[in-house]
Design a protein around this nucleic acid. Structure first.
Length: 762
DNA sequence: ATACACACTTAGCATGTCTAAA
DNA sequence: TTTAGACATGCTAAGTGTGTAT
C-alpha cells in the first residue's frame, strides 16, 4: 500500500499518491485469467480441506503464471531509477557492540524466555510426559504449561560454554513434566567423551535466554564462484553479421545471455532491454559505440558451444565424474561446516551466488539485469573474535569482519539487483535453525489454545463502528479461513505485482450475492508470492459480505481493498491477542491442525502400509491445497503416468495368470492328494497374494501421483506441518518414518523424531 | 506514522543423483 | 548395462516481521 496510508479518510484519493512511490500501477493489465475447468473436483471431494465450503474451486490453472505474466507486463522499467543504490552506506556503524551488554532487545526475542501468557488458556495435553520419553523432554518451549517459569539464565563463562549442558531447572514447578534432569547416565549420552558427536541432541539442552545466538563461531568463509573462462577462439560472436571479438568482460556477460537463449524470457522486451542496458555498461567504449542493437547480435555459436559442453559433461566417464564428486566433497568438508558452540554444524549455502542475469519470478520489472560477480571486498564476515578468522583469497580483503553473536549468519553481501542483503547461514539440521523451527510450532500450538477466543473477537469486530477495526477483522478472517499470507506492501515497480491479504486490491475480488445456489460468494483472483495465482470462490458470512461491499464503495479497481490496514497494524493487534502472534502463525496453525485432523480422519486401521501412506499424503495434500502450494505439472507427467498404467496392466495379467495357476494347482491337489501338490497350492497362493499386493501398491501409487499432479507437498511438509504430528502418526501405525521423510527431512526434523511419541497432539 | 534496514522463513524450479526397469 | 524417470538437492527469489531512524 505504498503511500496511501496517510489519509485517514475512507475515500481513497487516487490523486494523492504523489511521490514516486505509489502511483498505482497503470493497471491496464487485464486480469482476465481464463479459468479452467474443474479437473480437480474429485480430489477436492476426497481430501476435503478444513473448510468445507468449496474452497479452491479451481486452482488448476497453475502455470498460468507464465502466460499471464506476459499480459501484466509492460510497466516500464525506466521509471524506477536506481534508487536502491545508496542503501549500502548506512549500515556501517551499527553492530559495534556485540557484547551482551547491549540492551537486550525484547527479552524473548528468541522466544526463549517464557513470555507472559496473555491469558491462561486451558492447559493442553502435556503429551510430553509420556514416560518412555522422559529423557528427551527436558526442554520445552513456552507452550503448554502456562505457568512455566523462566529458566535460569546461566551465564556461562568461556570454558563452560563448551558444554551447554542441561543442568538447571530446579524450580520448575513440580509438574510431572519435570523429568529427570541430567540423565547423562550413559546410554544415550554418547557425548560424554566423544566430541565427534554422534547425534547431538541439542533439544535436550538449555537455550540461550540472553538474546545471543551463539558464544563461539568459527568458519572458513564462503566459496567464491569460479572465475570466468574466456571462450575458445573458434567460438565467435557476430554483430550485424560480422565477427567481433569481445573484451573479456563484455564477453562474459554475453555468455550469460547466450546460455539462456532457449528460454522464452530472452524474447521478452523487458528482459532484453534490461540485459542490453547492463551489458553495455560492461563494454569497452569501442564496443559500446558499435553494438547498439541487441537484435543484431548473434550469440548462436556461443549457445551451441554451451549446449555441447553440457552434453559433454553428461558423457563424461565414471572416473571423471567420480573425480568431480570427490572434489566437491573436499570443498564441502573444508567449507561446508562451521563450529558453533563446540559443535560442528553444516552450513546451508556456503557458495557465493555466481554472476548471471537476474530472472525474477512472474512479471518482474528487473528481469534480465546483470547480477554482478561478488568479490571478497563485498563480503562481511561474522565470527567470534576468538576464533580463527577466515582468510580472504590471496590478494583480497573482506569488506569487514565483525563479531555479532546476536545474529545467526556467517557471511553476508549486498546484492545489486534489489539492493537486499544475502546471507550465508546454517543448514536446517543445525541447532540454531531447529530451535527456531520448534519454537514456531510451539507458537502455533499456543494459538490453538486461544483461537476460539480470537475468532469470536474478530467476528464481533465485524460490527465495529470503526472502519479500521472492521477491515482488520475481515482481513484476519481471510487469513484464518483461507490461510492467506499477510501481504506486506512492496515497492512499486521494483518487483512483480503480487499481493497478500492486507495488500489486496479491489480488482482482486468479486462479490456475488448469490452464485450456484450459495449466498454471499467472494471470488478471489490474484497473484501471490512467486506470482502463483490464487483463485478461489468461497461463500462467506453475510456480515463479511456486507463489509466487503462497504470497503469497495467508491473505489477504483486499483485501490486497496483494506485502505485502513497494513500488516504492521494487523500484527500489532495480533500481538495484543497473544504473545508472539503474527499473521503467519495462522498459516502454520491451520496447516498443522488440518494435517492432524485429516490424518486422523483418513487413516483406516485395516489398511496396509501403502494405503495408509496414501492417506497421509492426502492429508498432506489437503494442507497444500489450503496453502495454495502449486507446481507445474512435471513435464513428463503424462508419459510417466502412462508407463505406470502399463505396469499396472501387466501386473493385472500376471495376477490373472497366477490365479489360473493356483486354480489348476488346487484341482491337481484334489486329485492327487499328496504332500507335494499341497505344497504347490500353498506356493501358488502365496504368489497370488504377493502379486495382489504389488498390484495394489501400483494402483495406490497411480492414484497418489494423479492427485499430486499440480500440487506440491514439499513446501508444507517442510515449513508448515509440525513434524511431531507426522512422527506420532508413524509411531501409532507402525510406519517407518523413512516412508514419510527422506534423509534430509529426517535430519531437519531429528528433534521431532526423537521426542514425539504416538500420543503427541498438536 | 512511515520508511528503511535487516534478519530470517518460505518458495518453486532447475539440475543432479539414484534407482529400477528395459 | 543403459536409460528413463523419480526423487533429492541446490539455488536463490520472494516473502514476513522487527527494530530503528526519520
Amino acid at each position: 500500500m505504498g503511500g496511501d496510508h496517510g489519509h485517514k479518510d475512507s475515500q481513497i484519493d487516487p490523486g494523492s499518491r504523489i511521490g514516486d512511490s505509489h502511483k498505482h500501477k497503470e493497471k491496464h493489465r487485464d486480469k482476465e485469467h481464463k479459468h479452467k475447468d474443474h479437473k480437480k473436483d474429485k480430489e477436492r471431494e476426497r481430501v476435503k480441506p478444513r473448510h468445507a465450503d468449496g474452497k479452491h474451486e479451481d486452482f488448476a490453472e497453475r502455470k498460468h503464471r507464465d502466460k499471464d505474466k506476459a499480459k501484466h507486463k509492460d510497466r516500464s522499467v525506466e521509471r524506477h531509477k536506481d534508487k536502491h543504490k545508496d542503501k549500502e552506506k548506512r549500515r556501517e556503524d551499527k553492530n559495534k557492540t556485540l557484547g551482551f551488554d547491549e540492551k537486550p532487545r525484547k527479552e524473548q526475542e528468541n522466544g526463549f524466555a517464557s513470555p507472559p501468557r496473555v491469558k491462561a488458556e486451558p492447559d493442553c495435553d502435556g503429551f510430553y510426559q509420556s514416560p518412555r520419553h522422559e529423557k528427551s523432554l527436558k526442554r520445552e518451549f513456552e507452550d503448554d504449561d502456562t505457568e512455566f517459569k523462566p529458566k535460569k539464565i546461566k551465564i556461562e563463562n568461556e570454558k563452560k560454554v563448551k558444554k551447554r549442558k542441561t543442568e538447571e531447572e530446579e524450580d520448575v514447578k513440580p509438574k510431572k513434566k519435570t523429568k529427570d534432569k541430567r540423565e547423562d547416565d550413559g546410554e544415550t549420552k554418547k557425548k560424554g567423551k566423544k566430541e565427534p558427536e554422534e547425534k547431538w541432541k541439542w533439544w535436550e539442552e538449555e537455550r540461550y535466554t540472553d538474546g545471543s545466538k551463539w558464544k563461539f563461531l568459527e568458519h572458513k568463509g564462503p566459496v567464491f564462484a569460479p572465475p570466468y573462462e574466456p571462450l575458445p577462439n573458434n567460438i565467435k560472436f557476430y554483430y550485424d553479421g560480422k565477427h567481433m571479438k569481445l573484451s573479456p568482460l563484455a564477453e562474459e556477460v554475453a555468455t550469460f545471455f547466450a546460455k539462456m537463449l532457449d528460454h522464452e524470457y530472452t524474447t521478452k522486451d523487458i528482459f532484453r532491454k534490461n540485459f542490453f542496458k547492463d551489458w553495455r555498461k560492461e563494454m569497452t567504449s569501442e564496443e559500446k559505440s558499435r553494438i547498439i542493437d541487441l537484435n543484431k547480435c548473434n550469440f548462436t555459436e556461443m549457445h551451441e558451444y554451451f549446449k555441447a559442453q553440457t552434453e559433454a559433461r553428461k558423457q563424461m566417464t565414471k572416473e571423471e565424474k567420480q573425480k568431480i564428486k570427490e572434489e566437491n566433497e573436499r570443498i564441502l568438508q573444508e567449507y561446508g561446516f562451521c563450529v558453533m558452540d563446540n559443535h560442528k554444524e553444516r552450513i546451508g549455502n556456503f557458495r557465493i551466488e555466481p554472476p548471471g542475469l537476474f530472472r525474477g519470478r512472474g512479471d518482474h520489472p528487473k528481469m534480465g539485469m546483470l547480477k554482478r560477480r561478488i568479490r571478497p571486498e563485498d563480503i562481511i564476515i561474522n565470527c567470534s573474535k576468538d576464533s580463527k578468522h577466515p582468510k580472504p583469497p590471496p590478494g583480497t580483503k573482506w569488506k569487514e569482519v565483525r563479531h555479532d553473536n546476536k545474529v545467526t549468519w556467517l557471511a553476508s553481501w549486498t546484492e545489486n539487483i534489489q539492493g537486499s542483503i544475502k546471507y550465508i547461514m546454517l543448514n536446517p539440521s543445525s541447532r540454531i535453525k531447529g530451535e527456531k523451527d520448534w519454537q514456531k510450532y510451539e507458537t502455533a500450538r499456543r494459538l490453538k489454545k486461544c483461537v476460539d477466543r480470537i475468532r469470536t473477537q474478530y467476528r464481533d469486530d465485524w460490527k465495529s463502528k470503526e472502519m479500521r477495526i472492521r477491515q482488520r477483522a475481515v482481513a484476519l478472517y481471510f487469513i484464518d479461513k483461507l490461510a492467506l499470507r499477510a501481504g506486506n506492501e512492496k515497492e512499486e515497480g521494483e518487483t512483480a505485482d503480487t499481493v497478500g491479504c492486507c495488500s489486496l486490491r479491489v480488482e482482486h475480488i468479486k462479490l456475488y450475492p448469490e452464485m450456484d445456489g450459495q449466498e454471499f460468494v467472494v471470488e478471489f483472483d490474484f497473484l501471490g508470492k512467486d506470482s502463483i495465482r490464487y483463485y478461489n470462490k468461497i461463500p462467506v458470512e453475510k456480515r463479511v459480505f456486507k463489509n466487503l461491499q462497504l470497503f469497495l464503495e467508491n473505489k477504483q479497481p486499483e485501490d486497496d481493498l483494506f485502505d485502513r490496514l497494513n500488516t504492521s497494524i494487523l500484527n500489532k493487534h495480533l500481538q495484543e491477542l497473544m504473545d508472539g502472534l503474527t499473521a503467519k502463525v495462522f498459516r502454520t496453525y491451520n496447516a498443522s491442525i488440518t494435517l492432524q485432523q485429516q490424518v486422523k480422519e483418513l487413516t483406516c486401521p485395516e489398511d496396509n502400509i501403502p494405503a495408509k501412506i496414501l492417506s497421509y499424503n492426502r492429508a498432506n495434500r489437503a494442507v497444500a491445497i489450503l496453502c495454495n502450494h502449486q507446481r507445474a505439472p512435471p513435464k513428463t507427467f503424462e508419459k510417466s503416468m502412462q508407463n505406470l498404467q502399463t505396469k499396472i496392466d501387466a501386473k493385472k495379467d500376471q495376477l490373472a495368470d497366477a490365479r489360473r495357476e493356483l486354480k489348476s494347482a488346487k484341482a491337481d491337489a484334489k486329485v492327487r492328494r499328496d504332500e507335494k501338490s499341497k505344497k504347490a497350492v500353498e506356493a501358488k497362493k502365496k504368489a497370488v497374494q504377493r502379486i495382489e499386493e504389488q498390484l495394489m501398491k501400483l494402483e495406490v501409487q497411480a492414484t497418489d501421483r494423479e492427485e499430486n499432479k499440480q500440487i506440491a507437498l514439499g513446501t508444507s511438509k517442510l515449513n508448515y506441518l509440525d513434524p511431531r504430528i507426522s512422527v506420532a502418526w508413524c509411531k501409532k501405525w507402525n510406519i517407518p518414518v523413512e516412508k514419510i521423510y527422506n534423509k534430509t527431512q529426517r535430519e531437519k526434523f531429528a528433534w521431532a523424531i526423537d521426542m514425539a511419541d504416538e500420543d503427541f497432539e498438536f
